[in-house]
């Protein structure tokens, strides 16, 4: 019993608290967003998402947040954390080195409520660049063989196939900040993912889609998209390679 008590005391002594500032906004009846502050206890492994869920459980259940996998796989819980776009489930409170943590909805996405944003435009632009293999033949025929690919060919695009469509890159992009029609780093990186795939034959049609006034030429290589990507996709690299095709640097 004494041992149990000492463990509890030890746990209590390691608990620290932070102030979690959550942006609240409901477009149906609010004119502007306001912040609500909550004191939350955390351990060194506590993530920002867990802190938000703690607030929902113990303080205010009406806080709106989208999440699912809690392991940086589904791409649902992207938000601005202390001014930078991050996945809440992939960001530990202890690594932020701050006693005050401010969470806001991702920039450049329309707000549904509080921290939840609409993804329709991201999915539309993703769909626009034809995110699938384009070929005349198919491996689905009964006598056809699978499309072979060497490890070297796989390396050309596998990095870009890691995209979880979380939207952090679009949120960090300086062009997205001002241009509503820009196709965005997420879709452009995915265009490269398929253009670089040795099995794909749709390079010309994809390059035609992105070669327009609000397409690839609006990217100015600020690189912020790559810095915030939680999966190591490096959209800035893919976009410059795509532009290399259009400028004749690559074939």
């Amino acid at each position: 019993m004494a041992q149990v008590s000492s463990i509890a005391e030890e746990q209590a002594s390691t608990l620290k608290t932070i102030t979690l500032r959550i942006a609240r906004y409901n477009p149906e009846h609010d004119d502007s967003s306001k912040f609500m502050e909550f004191n939350v206890s955390y351990e060194k492994w506590t993530t920002v998402l867990e802190a938000i869920l703690d607030v929902k459980k113990h303080h205010d259940h009406s806080v709106a947040v989208r999440y699912s996998c809690r392991q940086a796989t589904c791409g649902s819980c992207g938000m601005m954390i202390n001014g930078k776009p991050k996945l809440a489930c992939f960001t530990k409170i202890s690594e932020l080195n701050s006693n005050v943590i401010t969470v806001e909805p991702m920039n450049n996405f329309p707000i549904i409520r509080d921290l939840a944003v609409k993804f329709e435009r991201l999915f539309d632009t993703h769909q626009k660049i034809k995110p699938y293999l384009i070929r005349d033949d198919t491996e689905l025929e009964s006598d056809a063989k699978e499309f072979l690919q060497s490890p070297k060919e796989l390396e050309q695009y596998i990095q870009f196939a890691n995209c979880i469509k979380c939207g952090l890159c679009n949120s960090a992009c300086p062009t997205m900040a001002t241009d509503s029609s820009f196709v965005g780093p997420q879709a452009l990186a995915q265009a490269y993912r398929y253009v670089a795939d040795s099995r794909d034959k749709g390079k010309d049609s994809r390059l035609k889609i992105i070669d327009e006034s609000h397409g690839i030429w609006r990217c100015h290589f600020a690189g912020s998209c790559s810095q915030v990507c939680p999966k190591g996709v490096d959209p800035a690299m893919g976009i410059q390679f795509l532009r290399g095709y259009l400028l004749g640097f690559r074939s």
């Binding site: 790559s226 190591g232 996709v233 490096d234 690559r250």
Partner: peptide
């Protein structure tokens, strides 16, 4: 620098990313 980067020069090579995912283009 930007013009060379725009042509895909000096922005690294695609590879399987390793954590903590430092972007090769930067």
């Amino acid at each position: 620098r930007v013009m060379l980067g725009h042509g895909g020069v000096g922005v690294g090579k695609p590879a399987r990313p390793d954590y903590p995912y430092d972007p090769a283009s930067q």
